[in-house]
């Protein structure tokens, strides 16, 4: 049976990696800072206790005053899932998150899609181009302030 890691459990594990990374936690998710993400991601994948081998889903949500990037992580060997969230772009200004492509190759297309539709930039992605829409399209349609 699936064990979804609770927020506190995951928060403890992340604090071991980087003591200042965790900013907030809820029942099922952990919020961490964007700066700590590359190290945390690599450790989440590589540590024996967690071994989140797969980035199941990368989502971005526009919460009007800020953006949130949500990583659904999956450990096949432990059969566990965990949710890590990163707040970015406070005040809708320049949402930027370090890329996870060097840790999970599966982030590639998802990050491009997130950039395309939500306008969250992923620093360090080698090919940060639009995925769904054409080059030269203005705006990012999934933002709440996008008007047709």
């Amino acid at each position: 049976m699936n064990v979804a890691m609770s927020g506190s459990e995951l928060a403890d594990a992340i604090r071991e990696i980087d003591s200042e990374a965790v900013t907030d936690q809820s029942d099922d998710a952990v919020w961490i800072t964007a700066e700590s993400w590359p190290d945390v991601a690599a450790s989440l994948r590589d540590s024996e206790a967690l071994s989140f081998e797969m980035l199941s889903l990368l989502t971005t949500v526009d919460y009007i005053d800020h953006f949130e990037v949500i990583y659904h992580l999956l450990s096949l060997s432990k059969n566990r899932t965990g949710v890590v969230k990163i707040r970015c772009g406070e005040g809708r200004i320049d949402p930027t998150v370090p890329t996870a492509i060097n840790v999970w190759r599966g982030a590639d297309l998802q990050e491009r899609e997130a950039y395309d539709l939500m306008g969250v930039k992923f620093e360090g992605h080698p090919n940060m181009k639009r995925l769904m829409l054409w080059e030269g399209f203005e705006g990012h349609p999934l933002r709440k302030d996008y008007l047709r």
Partner: peptide, 20 residues
């Protein structure tokens, strides 16, 4: 390994020997 790392799932992953 590459498939898991690249979020590939379903019959493709099972054809690669991963019981998922």
């Amino acid at each position: 390994e590459d498939m898991i790392n690249a979020s590939i799932t379903g019959p493709m992953l099972r054809a690669g020997g991963v019981d998922w």
